[in-house]
């Protein structure tokens, strides 16, 4: 009976895992085929015409490396700035009797409810007033700020679970407020910081709509816009696209997987005990 149950659940999990990876399988197999192989009736992974030439030409005949570099830049900076800002706000909101704290937190949550696409036009106008069109700065500001509410909530939730006495002990031991944050709270909050960073990184790494409006110089393109150039309304370079998609996805998937342990504890900690 127990054995049967185990086999059944393993079977279910295997089935769903197949469901989860199937589209990836399709992209991967497309990335080895020619341009038009998205349209093909074979489900085989490797066909007679398959080769790694798409990957080869991705690096040799396109600006893929430039895009990659730009994306890394932007994502890393957004992660630093966004998480940095969120730490400050989250910590204050979690620990200090800030004025209007409750209202502030509510407003933070409601910002998540506005359809982001409608902010494009105002964003553009703000950025052009600030002369930040066509620079990474504009992108950095928008990305970090738009992901802030979620990050602040996330970190505040985690900070709430850290016993107050830990800080008090540190303050008696000789820490200033800043040292308490830096030497005690942050090292203790590593799981939550990892998750928050991951989300920030992901946003910047995959965002498309805003980047398309802000960045105009091809030398500044990030991966998502770069990828989009393979795809034109009447002729998509499917092979290149698929190969690039695989390369773009690999780092995030690896990050996700290596942080999946933290994800389990970090995501829910705040709400379980908060």
């Amino acid at each position: 009976m127990r054995q049967l149950k185990k086999i059944l659940s393993l079977l279910t999990l295997t089935l769903f895992s197949l469901f989860a990876v199937f589209p990836i399988y399709v992209v991967l197999s497309t990335s080895f085929r020619g341009d038009n192989a998205f349209q093909s009736t074979s489900l085989e992974f490797w066909t007679k015409t398959s080769s790694i030439s798409n990957y080869f030409s991705l690096f040799t005949s396109t600006d893929f490396l430039t895009w990659m570099r730009n994306s890394l830049w932007v994502s890393a900076a957004v992660t630093l700035i966004g998480v940095g800002f969120a730490i400050g706000a989250g910590y204050s909101l979690s620990r200090f009797p800030i004025r209007g704290k409750k209202t502030g937190l509510l407003i933070l949550m409601t910002t998540q409810m506005f359809p982001c696409t409608m902010l494009l036009l105002p964003f553009y106008i703000v950025l052009s007033h600030l002369q930040l069109i066509n620079s990474f700065w504009g992108l950095l500001i928008i990305y970090s700020a738009t992901s802030l509410p979620f990050c602040i909530w996330q970190l505040k939730g985690f900070f709430d679970t850290i016993p107050k006495e830990l800080e008090e002990a540190a303050r008696l031991d000789g820490c200033s407020h800043f040292q308490v944050l830096y030497k005690v709270i942050l090292p203790v909050s590593l799981p939550a910081l990892a998750i928050t960073s991951l989300f920030n990184f992901m946003t910047a790494w995959t965002e498309y709509a805003i980047a398309a409006v802000v960045l105009q110089d091809p030398q500044l393109y990030t991966l998502s816009i770069g990828l989009k150039t393979f795809q034109s309304s009447l002729a998509t370079q499917w092979g290149l696209y698929a190969a690039a998609a695989i390369i773009v996805s690999v780092p995030v998937v690896i990050l996700f997987m290596s942080l999946s342990k933290f994800l389990v504890s970090g995501l829910t900690m705040g709400s379980v005990k908060g």
């Binding site: 910590y91 703000v126 700020a145």
Partner: peptide, 18 residues
């Protein structure tokens, strides 16, 4: 003041961008 100051960057960027 410590709390308010470290909250300020997030606060300002939210006002400007959101």
């Amino acid at each position: 003041r410590f709390a308010y100051w470290i909250m300020l960057p997030a606060f300002l960027s939210l006002i400007a961008v959101v």
